Simulated scan of single mutants.
Amino acid sequence: MSALRLATCTYQEFAPHMGTPVRTTYGHPRFALPYQLGGHAQLITPTRDLLRIKAQDAYEFSYRRLLNGNGLENVQRELGAIAGANDLDAPLVLLCFDRLDRLTPPDDWCHRLHFGRWYAEQTGQEVPELGARRAAPPLTLFDV
């Protein structure tokens, strides 16, 4: 299987020039999308029970357990099928609701970032985030 091209973003920030939009959320968007989804990546979608976990470390541990249980080959097979049903040359853009530029610590994370790290560890392939990110705080004299 050739390497999948993956990226992540929010439903709200996605634009068709970015690639093929893929749902990775437990629920459908409750707002009209100006584009059509290319598929639903069910093997990387968090479960309802996962969504109840509020502590990032506990969530990531449980989400990685879900991903490892589903297996890299199965995840790649599912994503490959979605790519094959759409434009093979376009990256798959894995979508969720959380705008990273609007989250504040310690809640400045979401499952798509955990997936990206897991996938990079498994394959060596980075999964870039295409949405806006929270700006780093300015440097102070003490940081220099």
Rank of each mutant, 00 (worst) to 15 (best):
A32D: 14
A32K: 13
L33P: 08
P34W: 09
Y35C: 11
Y35F: 13
Q36H: 13
Q36G: 01
Q36T: 15
L37H: 07
L37E: 02
G38S: 07
G39H: 07
G39W: 10
G39A: 05
H40Q: 11
A41M: 03
Q42R: 15
L43P: 01
T45C: 11
P46W: 04
P46F: 10
P46I: 08
T47L: 14
T47I: 06
D49N: 14
D49R: 02
D49F: 08
L50H: 03
L50T: 12
R52P: 03
I53Y: 05
A55E: 15
Q56F: 04
Q56P: 06
D57M: 15
A58R: 13
Y59G: 10
Y59H: 07
Y59S: 01
E60R: 08
E60M: 11
E60N: 07
E60S: 11
F61E: 14
S62Y: 04
Y63I: 00
R64L: 01
R64D: 04
R64V: 09
L66Q: 08
L67N: 04
N68T: 09
N68L: 10
N68C: 01
N68D: 14
G69M: 05
G69H: 01
G69I: 06
L72C: 00
L72H: 10
E73W: 13
V75H: 04
V75R: 00
Q76R: 13
Q76C: 15
E78C: 00
G80P: 02
A81T: 12
I82A: 00
A83W: 03
A83M: 06
G84S: 13
A85K: 15
A85L: 12
N86M: 09
D87V: 03
L88W: 13
D89I: 11
D89V: 02
D89L: 12
D89A: 15
A90R: 09
A90S: 14
A90T: 04
A90V: 12
P91I: 07
L92R: 04
L92C: 10
L92E: 00
V93R: 02
V93G: 09
L94R: 07
L95M: 14
L95N: 00
C96V: 01
C96A: 06
D98M: 08
R99E: 05
L100N: 07
L100A: 09
D101G: 11
D101S: 15
D101Y: 09
L103Y: 09
P105L: 09
P106E: 01
D107C: 12
C110W: 00
H111L: 04
R112Q: 04
R112T: 10
R112M: 12
R112W: 05
L113A: 13
L113V: 12
H114L: 03
H114G: 10
H114V: 10
G116F: 00
G116M: 02
G116I: 02
R117Q: 15
R117S: 14
W118F: 13
W118K: 06
W118D: 04
Y119H: 02
A120S: 06
A120P: 06
A120W: 09
A120C: 12
E121V: 00
Q122R: 12
Q122I: 08
T123I: 10
Q125E: 08
Q125L: 12
E126R: 07
E126L: 10
E126D: 14
E126K: 06
V127Q: 10
V127E: 02
P128M: 00
G131W: 00
A132W: 07
A132R: 07
R133A: 13
A135P: 04
A135I: 05
P137S: 09
L139Y: 11
T140V: 00
T140F: 05
F142T: 15
D143E: 14
